[in-house]
């Protein structure tokens, strides 16, 4: 990194902290701190929702996914616009009109304190751990770019974010998110421009896209119905619908954001912004990965994008084996480049296109095979079983191929993506712990000033906790997967409880609580004993909660009589 790039990164960090801190002057009551006085405009909240959802893992991981597998991951987001409409019609008016601070608070009004406390506890447990992963995954990659240790990088990400979130509350989070979103989109567009300009003079954009398409990297629709395949049209439109309804409708980090708007229609407007822009934005991120694939197809690139492992293996005990693998990679890449040029020539001539395309596909499969072998080699040589080169593709491209200035802008964009997610999650964790536990069970009568102090301490505590988890997760790679799987255990189940809350007047509190436990048990069984892909776990969890919840409620009504069961069951 050059001086100008460092300058851009430092200016970005200082600007964010300053901008966040200047919001503190409007924060003198709990509603101002947690809900921005319910006065934020829909467009700012909409951008904030999108910024929180777009993490640094998206910037570094999804671009790498586009490089390796192409755009098929886009199918994951196809249900999002429909989920936004469903939520705008159902949960949003319930939350907004009930004047709650947290989504779980609503569950006590409808059911009982134990259902509220349990769902909130699930949120705190899973979110705090996954926040550690959200910090850890990019920190590991950014530490390579900055030449810092992982602990130092975690501090660079978490400390400034914690400072403005602690003092500025949700207003600071939302308004910094708006600026961070500008950085993210600006950085992504700059990357696309550099990638297109960087194509060889004799390769047009159309040629490049035809080459990418021929290797399957522009596939955005897979209509096969396979429950074990994560990314198909059906899992993206049916199973993901449940995931997005759960995430945007019951996860405090999202619900809190649209509670900051002044009316139900403004809250709906903020969600519909994601409905319009999420798929195109995600397509842009994946397209960057695809363009990097084309770039490195015509320009010799590294076998492993993680420079540290590459260097260690070149100098290690198995250097000869590694060099042999490197030679195979160079040969396979040269042959693929020749095949790509032959394919473009065949297209231009209008003959022999099918044969040239088949050859290109075969050569590409060969290169992919050698890269996969190299990654297995790293895992065996270093003992790091979770090593994945995918996350290093975009950062390596930025630091080695981008012009000065754009490097700084893109690193600031990655930091922005990380910080917007961290800030949103910290604010949500603080709100849930203070409102659902401290104020509910410990000090219900305390003053707003007291709660504000406690909220700031809670924000600081969660920042410290997630940072420690981040450093720990960096050294225990496999933990990341455990945390991600843990989260998927109850997303659908929590959605099921909310479906019972607003959609089933006959559901009782015991029915909802037992249904929730049954839903989580069903998901655990599906995850442990069936090959069903995790997206479908959301459907399994939600359906199990609704069925078991209604059954238990009906049994309770029969045993105790309708009057006793209905005591709390009000819609």
């Amino acid at each position: 990194m050059r001086t100008l790039d460092w300058f851009i990164v430092v200016v970005y960090l200082v600007w964010m902290v300053w901008d966040g801190l200047r919001r503190t002057k409007n924060v003198d009551a709990l509603e101002g701190y947690f809900l921005g006085g319910r006065s934020l405009p829909w467009w700012a909240v909409g951008l904030s929702v999108m910024a929180t959802q777009l993490s640094a893992i998206t910037m570094v991981g999804t671009t790498g996914q586009g490089f390796n597998d192409g755009m098929r991951f886009l199918q994951f987001y196809y249900a999002l616009p429909i989920a936004m409409i469903v939520l705008s019609v159902t949960l949003v008016p319930f939350f907004h009109n009930s004047g709650v601070y947290t989504a779980y608070e609503y569950l006590e009004r409808r059911f009982d304190a134990k259902t509220r406390a349990f769902t909130s506890l699930l949120f705190l447990g899973s979110r705090s751990m996954s926040l550690g992963v959200v910090i850890s995954a990019p920190a590991v990659v950014i530490s390579v770019m900055f030449g810092l240790s992982v602990t130092q990088t975690v501090l660079v990400l978490a400390l400034p974010t914690a400072v403005y979130t602690m003092f500025g509350g949700v207003q600071a989070v939302a308004w910094t998110d708006v600026k961070q979103m500008v950085f993210i989109v600006g950085g992504l567009l700059a990357a696309v421009v550099v990638l297109i300009v960087g194509l060889p003079a004799d390769v047009s954009l159309s040629d490049a896209l035809h080459v990418a398409g021929s290797t399957g990297r522009l596939q955005t629709f897979d209509f096969s119905f396979d429950l074990t395949n994560q990314y198909t049209f059906w899992s993206g439109t049916i199973a993901a619908l449940f995931l997005f309804c759960s995430y945007f409708g019951t996860d405090q980090s999202q619900v809190q954001r649209y509670l900051t708007t002044k009316s139900v229609d403004e809250a709906r407007g903020s969600l519909l912004m994601s409905a319009y822009w999420k798929i195109p934005l995600q397509a842009l991120v994946l397209l960057i990965g695809v363009l990097m694939f084309v770039y490195y197809l015509f320009t010799p690139g590294p076998m492993l994008f993680d420079g540290r492992h590459d260097q260690a293996l070149r100098e290690g005990a198995r250097a000869t084996e590694y060099q042999a693998l490197q030679s195979r990679f160079t040969d396979a890449s040269d042959q693929r480049r020749a095949a790509a040029r032959a394919f473009s020539a065949a297209r231009a001539a209008g003959q022999g296109v099918d044969a040239a395309q088949a050859d290109l596909r075969a050569r590409d499969a060969e290169v992919r095979g050698v890269r996969a072998e190299a990654q297995r080699f790293v895992r065996a040589a270093t003992g790091d079983s979770s090593y994945n080169d995918t996350n290093y593709v975009f950062p390596t491209f930025i630091t080695t191929q981008m012009p000065v200035g754009v490097v700084g802008l893109l690193i600031a964009a990655i930091l922005a993506a990380a910080m917007s997610t961290i800030a949103g999650e910290l604010s949500a964790l603080s709100t849930a712990s203070v409102i659902d536990f401290y104020r509910r069970f410990l000090r219900p009568e305390a003053s707003d000033a007291h709660f504000l102090r406690v909220s700031r301490i809670a924000t600081g505590f969660w920042a410290l906790f997630s940072s420690v988890v981040a450093v720990w997760a960096a050294s225990l790679g496999s933990l990341i997967e455990v945390v991600n799987r843990f989260g998927s255990f109850f997303y659908g189940s929590i959605l099921g409880v909310f479906i019972l809350a607003i959609g089933a007047k006959r559901a009782t509190s015991n029915g909802a609580f037992i249904g929730l436990l049954a839903g989580m048990a069903s998901v655990w069984y599906a995850a442990s004993y069936t090959p069903v892909a995790f997206l479908w776990h959301n459907v399994i969890g939600a359906v199990a909660v609704v069925i078991v919840g209604l059954l238990v409620s009906e049994i309770e009504r029969q045993v105790r009589g309708p009057a006793a069961s209905d005591a709390r069951a009000r819609a």
Binding site: L74, Y78, I85, S214, G216, L272
Partner: peptide, 30 residues
């Protein structure tokens, strides 16, 4: 039609257009 209902219809129409464009993109370049 209320304002919100027409907003929802607009979202669905744009959604279908985006999916159609992506499908055409995949078919054209594959």
């Amino acid at each position: 039609m209320s304002t919100m209902t027409s907003s929802y219809v607009r979202v669905v129409v744009v959604w279908l257009l985006v999916l159609a464009a992506l499908f055409a993109f995949q078919r054209y370049f594959s």
